[in-house]
Design a protein around this nucleic acid. Sequence first.
DNA 1: ACCTGAACACCGTTCAAGT
DNA 2: ACCTGAACACCGTTCAAGT
Lengths: 187, 187
Amino acid sequence: MSLNAREEILATAKLVAQAHGYAGLNFRDLAEQVGIKAASIYYYFPSKADLAAAVAKRYWEDSAAYLDGLLRDSASPLDALRQYPKTFRWALENDNRICLCSFMSAQFDDVPEAVRVEVQTFADVNIEWLKKTIIAAKVATPRQADKRARAIYSGIVGAQLVARSRNDIALYDGLIESYRSTGLLPA
Amino acid sequence: MSLNAREEILATAKLVAQAHGYAGLNFRDLAEQVGIKAASIYYYFPSKADLAAAVAKRYWEDSAAYLDGLLRDSASPLDALRQYPKTFRWALENDNRICLCSFMSAQFDDVPEAVRVEVQTFADVNIEWLKKTIIAAKVATPRQADKRARAIYSGIVGAQLVARSRNDIALYDGLIESYRSTGLLPA
DNA sequence: ACCTGAACACCGTTCAAGT
DNA sequence: ACCTGAACACCGTTCAAGT
Protein backbone atom coordinates (compact mmCIF):
# COMPACT_ATOMS: atom_id res chain seq x y z
CA MET A 1 0.00 0.00 0.00
CA SER A 2 2.40 2.66 1.21
CA LEU A 3 4.11 4.30 -1.74
CA ASN A 4 7.10 6.51 -1.20
CA ALA A 5 6.40 10.06 -0.12
CA ARG A 6 7.05 11.57 -3.52
CA GLU A 7 4.51 9.31 -5.21
CA GLU A 8 1.96 9.96 -2.49
CA ILE A 9 2.41 13.70 -2.88
CA LEU A 10 1.92 13.43 -6.65
CA ALA A 11 -1.18 11.26 -6.35
CA THR A 12 -2.78 13.43 -3.69
CA ALA A 13 -1.91 16.67 -5.46
CA LYS A 14 -3.57 15.38 -8.61
CA LEU A 15 -6.86 14.86 -6.79
CA VAL A 16 -6.65 18.25 -5.11
CA ALA A 17 -5.90 20.01 -8.40
CA GLN A 18 -8.84 18.31 -10.10
CA ALA A 19 -11.17 19.66 -7.42
CA HIS A 20 -9.64 23.04 -6.53
CA GLY A 21 -7.23 23.90 -9.31
CA TYR A 22 -3.78 25.39 -9.10
CA ALA A 23 -4.74 28.17 -6.70
CA GLY A 24 -6.52 25.70 -4.45
CA LEU A 25 -3.53 23.41 -4.25
CA ASN A 26 -2.10 24.21 -0.83
CA PHE A 27 0.85 22.62 0.86
CA ARG A 28 -0.54 22.46 4.39
CA ASP A 29 -3.64 20.46 3.52
CA LEU A 30 -1.72 18.41 0.99
CA ALA A 31 0.98 17.57 3.53
CA GLU A 32 -1.60 16.62 6.13
CA GLN A 33 -3.25 14.18 3.73
CA VAL A 34 0.13 12.63 3.00
CA GLY A 35 1.13 12.56 6.67
CA ILE A 36 4.09 14.92 6.61
CA LYS A 37 4.62 18.64 7.23
CA ALA A 38 4.09 21.26 4.56
CA ALA A 39 7.74 22.21 4.51
CA SER A 40 8.73 18.60 3.77
CA ILE A 41 7.10 18.78 0.35
CA TYR A 42 9.83 21.19 -0.65
CA TYR A 43 12.37 18.42 -0.27
CA TYR A 44 10.79 16.67 -3.25
CA PHE A 45 9.59 19.67 -5.23
CA PRO A 46 11.49 22.96 -5.14
CA SER A 47 8.33 25.02 -5.57
CA LYS A 48 4.60 24.81 -6.07
CA ALA A 49 5.20 25.38 -9.78
CA ASP A 50 7.52 22.37 -9.94
CA LEU A 51 5.05 20.18 -8.10
CA ALA A 52 2.19 21.22 -10.35
CA ALA A 53 4.31 20.70 -13.46
CA ALA A 54 5.24 17.20 -12.26
CA VAL A 55 1.60 16.42 -11.52
CA ALA A 56 0.47 17.63 -14.94
CA LYS A 57 3.28 15.72 -16.66
CA ARG A 58 2.34 12.51 -14.90
CA TYR A 59 -1.26 13.23 -15.79
CA TRP A 60 -0.68 13.34 -19.56
CA GLU A 61 1.74 10.41 -19.40
CA ASP A 62 -0.92 8.28 -17.73
CA SER A 63 -3.51 9.49 -20.23
CA ALA A 64 -1.24 8.69 -23.17
CA ALA A 65 -0.54 5.20 -21.84
CA TYR A 66 -4.23 4.55 -21.24
CA LEU A 67 -5.29 5.74 -24.68
CA ASP A 68 -2.64 3.62 -26.39
CA GLY A 69 -3.94 0.59 -24.53
CA LEU A 70 -7.53 1.47 -25.36
CA LEU A 71 -6.82 1.64 -29.08
CA ARG A 72 -4.75 -1.55 -28.96
CA ASP A 73 -7.31 -3.57 -27.00
CA SER A 74 -10.48 -2.36 -28.70
CA ALA A 75 -12.24 -4.44 -31.32
CA SER A 76 -11.87 -1.55 -33.77
CA PRO A 77 -10.77 2.11 -33.89
CA LEU A 78 -14.44 3.10 -34.03
CA ASP A 79 -15.02 1.12 -30.88
CA ALA A 80 -12.12 2.87 -29.15
CA LEU A 81 -13.57 6.20 -30.23
CA ARG A 82 -16.90 5.29 -28.70
CA GLN A 83 -15.17 4.60 -25.39
CA TYR A 84 -13.29 7.89 -25.36
CA PRO A 85 -15.94 10.01 -23.59
CA LYS A 86 -15.75 7.62 -20.64
CA THR A 87 -12.24 8.80 -19.84
CA PHE A 88 -13.66 12.22 -19.02
CA ARG A 89 -16.62 10.71 -17.20
CA TRP A 90 -14.38 9.11 -14.58
CA ALA A 91 -13.33 12.45 -13.14
CA LEU A 92 -16.99 13.38 -12.62
CA GLU A 93 -17.61 10.00 -11.00
CA ASN A 94 -14.75 10.78 -8.64
CA ASP A 95 -16.57 13.35 -6.46
CA ASN A 96 -17.49 15.66 -9.33
CA ARG A 97 -13.88 16.37 -10.27
CA ILE A 98 -12.83 17.58 -13.70
CA CYS A 99 -9.81 17.21 -15.92
CA LEU A 100 -6.80 18.76 -14.22
CA CYS A 101 -5.93 20.44 -17.50
CA SER A 102 -9.33 22.01 -17.98
CA PHE A 103 -9.10 23.51 -14.51
CA MET A 104 -5.63 24.87 -15.14
CA SER A 105 -6.69 26.15 -18.55
CA ALA A 106 -9.27 28.29 -16.79
CA GLN A 107 -6.52 29.50 -14.47
CA PHE A 108 -4.20 30.22 -17.39
CA ASP A 109 -3.23 33.69 -16.12
CA ASP A 110 -2.13 32.37 -12.75
CA VAL A 111 -0.39 29.16 -13.80
CA PRO A 112 3.42 29.24 -14.25
CA GLU A 113 4.77 28.67 -17.74
CA ALA A 114 6.36 25.32 -16.82
CA VAL A 115 2.92 24.05 -15.79
CA ARG A 116 1.22 25.44 -18.87
CA VAL A 117 3.52 23.43 -21.08
CA GLU A 118 2.47 20.15 -19.46
CA VAL A 119 -1.19 21.18 -19.49
CA GLN A 120 -0.98 21.87 -23.20
CA THR A 121 0.75 18.55 -23.79
CA PHE A 122 -2.24 16.77 -22.27
CA ALA A 123 -4.47 18.40 -24.88
CA ASP A 124 -1.95 17.60 -27.62
CA VAL A 125 -1.83 13.94 -26.60
CA ASN A 126 -5.60 13.66 -26.60
CA ILE A 127 -6.03 15.46 -29.90
CA GLU A 128 -3.32 13.40 -31.61
CA TRP A 129 -4.91 10.19 -30.39
CA LEU A 130 -8.34 11.34 -31.56
CA LYS A 131 -6.89 12.33 -34.89
CA LYS A 132 -5.26 9.00 -35.67
CA THR A 133 -8.21 7.04 -34.32
CA ILE A 134 -10.67 9.09 -36.37
CA ILE A 135 -8.62 8.42 -39.49
CA ALA A 136 -8.32 4.71 -38.73
CA ALA A 137 -12.06 4.53 -38.10
CA LYS A 138 -12.73 6.48 -41.30
CA VAL A 139 -14.87 8.90 -39.32
CA ALA A 140 -13.14 11.75 -41.13
CA THR A 141 -10.63 12.04 -43.95
CA PRO A 142 -6.97 12.68 -43.02
CA ARG A 143 -7.52 16.21 -44.29
CA GLN A 144 -10.43 16.89 -41.93
CA ALA A 145 -9.19 14.83 -39.00
CA ASP A 146 -7.26 17.53 -37.16
CA LYS A 147 -10.14 19.96 -37.02
CA ARG A 148 -12.55 17.21 -36.13
CA ALA A 149 -10.30 15.91 -33.34
CA ARG A 150 -10.03 19.38 -31.84
CA ALA A 151 -13.78 19.88 -32.00
CA ILE A 152 -14.42 16.57 -30.25
CA TYR A 153 -11.91 17.41 -27.55
CA SER A 154 -13.33 20.86 -26.86
CA GLY A 155 -16.89 19.55 -26.95
CA ILE A 156 -16.11 16.93 -24.32
CA VAL A 157 -14.17 19.42 -22.19
CA GLY A 158 -17.21 21.70 -22.24
CA ALA A 159 -19.61 18.90 -21.40
CA GLN A 160 -17.52 17.91 -18.41
CA LEU A 161 -17.38 21.49 -17.14
CA VAL A 162 -21.11 22.02 -17.57
CA ALA A 163 -21.86 18.74 -15.79
CA ARG A 164 -19.63 19.77 -12.88
CA SER A 165 -21.50 23.05 -12.53
CA ARG A 166 -24.63 21.02 -11.73
CA ASN A 167 -22.90 18.11 -10.04
CA ASP A 168 -24.83 15.95 -12.50
CA ILE A 169 -23.26 13.06 -14.39
CA ALA A 170 -26.51 12.36 -16.24
CA LEU A 171 -26.13 15.80 -17.78
CA TYR A 172 -22.72 14.75 -19.12
CA ASP A 173 -24.18 11.60 -20.59
CA GLY A 174 -26.96 13.58 -22.22
CA LEU A 175 -24.51 16.01 -23.79
CA ILE A 176 -22.38 13.19 -25.19
CA GLU A 177 -25.53 11.66 -26.60
CA SER A 178 -26.41 14.97 -28.23
CA TYR A 179 -22.94 15.21 -29.71
CA ARG A 180 -23.56 11.81 -31.24
CA SER A 181 -26.95 12.67 -32.64
CA THR A 182 -25.80 15.99 -34.08
CA GLY A 183 -22.81 14.36 -35.73
CA LEU A 184 -19.88 15.74 -33.73
CA LEU A 185 -19.18 12.26 -32.36
CA PRO A 186 -19.72 9.09 -34.38
CA ALA A 187 -23.01 7.38 -33.57
CA MET B 1 -17.13 58.59 -17.03
CA SER B 2 -17.04 58.15 -13.27
CA LEU B 3 -19.74 55.77 -12.14
CA ASN B 4 -20.63 55.47 -8.53
CA ALA B 5 -18.36 53.31 -6.42
CA ARG B 6 -20.73 50.37 -6.23
CA GLU B 7 -20.97 50.15 -10.00
CA GLU B 8 -17.23 50.47 -10.38
CA ILE B 9 -16.68 47.66 -7.89
CA LEU B 10 -19.10 45.44 -9.79
CA ALA B 11 -17.55 46.21 -13.17
CA THR B 12 -14.00 45.71 -11.95
CA ALA B 13 -14.83 42.53 -10.03
CA LYS B 14 -16.39 41.11 -13.18
CA LEU B 15 -13.14 41.56 -15.10
CA VAL B 16 -11.07 40.13 -12.28
CA ALA B 17 -13.34 37.09 -11.96
CA GLN B 18 -13.19 36.44 -15.71
CA ALA B 19 -9.39 36.32 -15.52
CA HIS B 20 -8.72 34.82 -12.07
CA GLY B 21 -11.97 33.29 -10.86
CA TYR B 22 -13.55 33.40 -7.44
CA ALA B 23 -10.40 32.46 -5.55
CA GLY B 24 -8.42 35.10 -7.42
CA LEU B 25 -10.87 37.84 -6.55
CA ASN B 26 -9.26 39.65 -3.62
CA PHE B 27 -10.48 42.81 -1.97
CA ARG B 28 -7.14 44.57 -1.66
CA ASP B 29 -6.30 44.47 -5.38
CA LEU B 30 -9.91 45.10 -6.32
CA ALA B 31 -10.09 48.15 -4.09
CA GLU B 32 -6.85 49.50 -5.50
CA GLN B 33 -8.18 49.26 -9.05
CA VAL B 34 -11.33 51.10 -8.04
CA GLY B 35 -9.37 53.69 -6.12
CA ILE B 36 -10.68 53.00 -2.62
CA LYS B 37 -9.53 50.88 0.30
CA ALA B 38 -10.41 47.24 0.81
CA ALA B 39 -12.49 47.99 3.89
CA SER B 40 -14.68 50.33 1.86
CA ILE B 41 -15.97 47.51 -0.29
CA TYR B 42 -17.73 46.16 2.79
CA TYR B 43 -19.88 49.27 2.86
CA TYR B 44 -21.49 48.08 -0.39
CA PHE B 45 -21.18 44.30 -0.06
CA PRO B 46 -21.32 42.54 3.31
CA SER B 47 -18.99 39.72 2.22
CA LYS B 48 -17.02 38.33 -0.68
CA ALA B 49 -19.82 35.86 -1.34
CA ASP B 50 -22.33 38.72 -1.62
CA LEU B 51 -20.09 40.64 -3.99
CA ALA B 52 -19.52 37.60 -6.21
CA ALA B 53 -23.24 36.79 -6.24
CA ALA B 54 -24.03 40.38 -7.25
CA VAL B 55 -21.43 40.24 -10.00
CA ALA B 56 -22.75 36.94 -11.35
CA LYS B 57 -26.33 38.21 -11.17
CA ARG B 58 -25.45 41.34 -13.12
CA TYR B 59 -23.56 39.13 -15.55
CA TRP B 60 -26.55 37.00 -16.49
CA GLU B 61 -28.88 40.00 -16.50
CA ASP B 62 -26.65 41.75 -19.02
CA SER B 63 -26.40 38.56 -21.05
CA ALA B 64 -30.19 38.12 -21.06
CA ALA B 65 -30.73 41.71 -22.16
CA TYR B 66 -28.18 41.42 -24.93
CA LEU B 67 -29.57 38.14 -26.25
CA ASP B 68 -33.11 39.52 -26.29
CA GLY B 69 -31.89 42.47 -28.32
CA LEU B 70 -29.95 40.21 -30.65
CA LEU B 71 -32.97 38.09 -31.46
CA ARG B 72 -35.17 41.17 -31.86
CA ASP B 73 -32.78 43.04 -34.12
CA SER B 74 -31.61 40.14 -36.29
CA ALA B 75 -32.99 39.58 -39.76
CA SER B 76 -34.07 36.11 -38.69
CA PRO B 77 -33.74 33.67 -35.77
CA LEU B 78 -31.20 31.70 -37.82
CA ASP B 79 -29.21 34.87 -38.22
CA ALA B 80 -29.30 35.49 -34.47
CA LEU B 81 -28.12 31.94 -33.91
CA ARG B 82 -25.20 32.50 -36.23
CA GLN B 83 -24.17 35.53 -34.19
CA TYR B 84 -24.34 33.69 -30.86
CA PRO B 85 -20.74 32.36 -30.80
CA LYS B 86 -19.51 35.95 -31.00
CA THR B 87 -20.82 36.63 -27.51
CA PHE B 88 -18.28 34.15 -26.14
CA ARG B 89 -15.59 35.45 -28.47
CA TRP B 90 -15.64 38.88 -26.84
CA ALA B 91 -14.26 37.59 -23.56
CA LEU B 92 -11.30 36.09 -25.40
CA GLU B 93 -10.78 39.37 -27.24
CA ASN B 94 -10.71 41.07 -23.85
CA ASP B 95 -7.22 39.91 -22.78
CA ASN B 96 -7.96 36.21 -23.15
CA ARG B 97 -10.69 36.24 -20.51
CA ILE B 98 -13.41 33.61 -20.35
CA CYS B 99 -17.02 33.49 -19.25
CA LEU B 100 -17.25 34.27 -15.56
CA CYS B 101 -19.63 31.36 -15.18
CA SER B 102 -17.32 28.86 -16.83
CA PHE B 103 -14.57 29.89 -14.45
CA MET B 104 -16.81 29.58 -11.42
CA SER B 105 -18.16 26.27 -12.68
CA ALA B 106 -14.61 24.93 -12.57
CA GLN B 107 -14.36 26.27 -9.02
CA PHE B 108 -17.67 24.71 -8.05
CA ASP B 109 -16.33 23.19 -4.81
CA ASP B 110 -15.06 26.53 -3.53
CA VAL B 111 -17.89 28.83 -4.60
CA PRO B 112 -20.60 29.71 -2.04
CA GLU B 113 -24.10 28.47 -2.74
CA ALA B 114 -25.50 31.99 -3.30
CA VAL B 115 -22.96 32.47 -6.09
CA ARG B 116 -23.61 29.06 -7.62
CA VAL B 117 -27.26 29.95 -8.06
CA GLU B 118 -26.44 33.00 -10.15
CA VAL B 119 -23.81 31.10 -12.12
CA GLN B 120 -26.36 28.44 -12.96
CA THR B 121 -28.88 31.07 -13.96
CA PHE B 122 -26.44 32.35 -16.57
CA ALA B 123 -26.36 28.90 -18.14
CA ASP B 124 -30.16 28.65 -17.87
CA VAL B 125 -30.63 32.00 -19.60
CA ASN B 126 -28.32 31.03 -22.44
CA ILE B 127 -29.84 27.59 -22.90
CA GLU B 128 -33.39 28.94 -22.86
CA TRP B 129 -32.50 31.56 -25.46
CA LEU B 130 -30.79 28.96 -27.65
CA LYS B 131 -33.78 26.68 -27.27
CA LYS B 132 -36.38 29.19 -28.40
CA THR B 133 -34.16 30.53 -31.16
CA ILE B 134 -33.42 27.03 -32.44
CA ILE B 135 -37.13 26.31 -32.56
CA ALA B 136 -37.93 29.60 -34.29
CA ALA B 137 -35.16 28.96 -36.81
CA LYS B 138 -36.41 25.41 -37.33
CA VAL B 139 -32.90 24.12 -36.64
CA ALA B 140 -34.43 21.49 -34.39
CA THR B 141 -37.92 20.36 -33.50
CA PRO B 142 -39.39 21.56 -30.19
CA ARG B 143 -38.86 18.02 -28.94
CA GLN B 144 -35.14 18.03 -29.71
CA ALA B 145 -34.48 21.68 -28.95
CA ASP B 146 -33.58 21.37 -25.28
CA LYS B 147 -30.88 18.77 -25.80
CA ARG B 148 -29.57 20.60 -28.82
CA ALA B 149 -29.44 23.91 -26.96
CA ARG B 150 -27.48 22.32 -24.12
CA ALA B 151 -25.06 20.69 -26.54
CA ILE B 152 -24.42 23.99 -28.32
CA TYR B 153 -23.86 25.76 -25.02
CA SER B 154 -21.39 23.18 -23.70
CA GLY B 155 -19.61 23.00 -27.04
CA ILE B 156 -19.05 26.74 -27.05
CA VAL B 157 -18.00 26.77 -23.41
CA GLY B 158 -15.40 24.11 -24.21
CA ALA B 159 -14.16 25.96 -27.27
CA GLN B 160 -13.67 29.12 -25.25
CA LEU B 161 -11.77 27.27 -22.53
CA VAL B 162 -9.53 25.47 -25.02
CA ALA B 163 -8.80 28.73 -26.84
CA ARG B 164 -7.86 30.39 -23.54
CA SER B 165 -5.41 27.59 -22.78
CA ARG B 166 -3.46 28.62 -25.90
CA ASN B 167 -4.26 32.31 -25.78
CA ASP B 168 -5.43 31.85 -29.37
CA ILE B 169 -8.64 33.36 -30.70
CA ALA B 170 -8.11 31.77 -34.13
CA LEU B 171 -8.39 28.42 -32.37
CA TYR B 172 -11.82 29.44 -31.08
CA ASP B 173 -12.90 30.46 -34.57
CA GLY B 174 -11.68 27.15 -35.96
CA LEU B 175 -13.60 25.17 -33.36
CA ILE B 176 -16.80 27.07 -34.07
CA GLU B 177 -16.28 26.41 -37.75
CA SER B 178 -15.86 22.69 -37.00
CA TYR B 179 -19.04 22.70 -34.95
CA ARG B 180 -20.78 24.13 -38.01
CA SER B 181 -19.34 21.61 -40.44
CA THR B 182 -20.09 18.63 -38.17
CA GLY B 183 -23.66 19.80 -37.64
CA LEU B 184 -23.68 20.86 -33.98
CA LEU B 185 -24.20 24.46 -35.05
CA PRO B 186 -26.28 25.44 -38.11
CA ALA B 187 -24.13 26.19 -41.15
C1' DA C 1 -23.82 58.48 3.63
C1' DC C 2 -19.34 57.20 2.65
C1' DC C 3 -14.63 56.05 3.68
C1' DT C 4 -10.28 54.46 6.17
C1' DG C 5 -6.30 52.92 9.38
C1' DA C 6 -5.24 49.55 12.12
C1' DA C 7 -5.74 45.27 13.83
C1' DC C 8 -7.07 40.27 14.07
C1' DA C 9 -7.01 35.44 12.99
C1' DC C 10 -5.78 32.64 9.56
C1' DC C 11 -3.13 30.47 5.81
C1' DG C 12 0.29 29.53 1.95
C1' DT C 13 5.26 29.80 1.15
C1' DT C 14 9.96 29.74 2.22
C1' DC C 15 14.45 28.55 4.19
C1' DA C 16 17.84 27.86 7.64
C1' DA C 17 18.57 24.43 10.62
C1' DG C 18 17.82 19.97 12.64
C1' DT C 19 18.30 14.51 12.67
C1' DA D 1 18.60 11.67 2.73
C1' DC D 2 14.72 13.36 4.98
C1' DC D 3 12.14 16.49 7.81
C1' DT D 4 10.54 20.73 10.47
C1' DG D 5 10.04 25.22 13.30
C1' DA D 6 9.45 29.58 12.68
C1' DA D 7 9.23 33.59 10.13
C1' DC D 8 7.16 36.07 6.39
C1' DA D 9 3.65 37.84 3.32
C1' DC D 10 -0.96 37.99 2.34
C1' DC D 11 -6.11 37.66 2.78
C1' DG D 12 -10.97 38.24 4.43
C1' DT D 13 -12.96 40.60 7.87
C1' DT D 14 -14.04 43.80 11.67
C1' DC D 15 -14.59 48.16 13.93
C1' DA D 16 -13.84 52.51 15.91
C1' DA D 17 -13.11 56.69 14.01
C1' DG D 18 -12.99 60.23 10.47
C1' DT D 19 -15.33 63.40 6.79
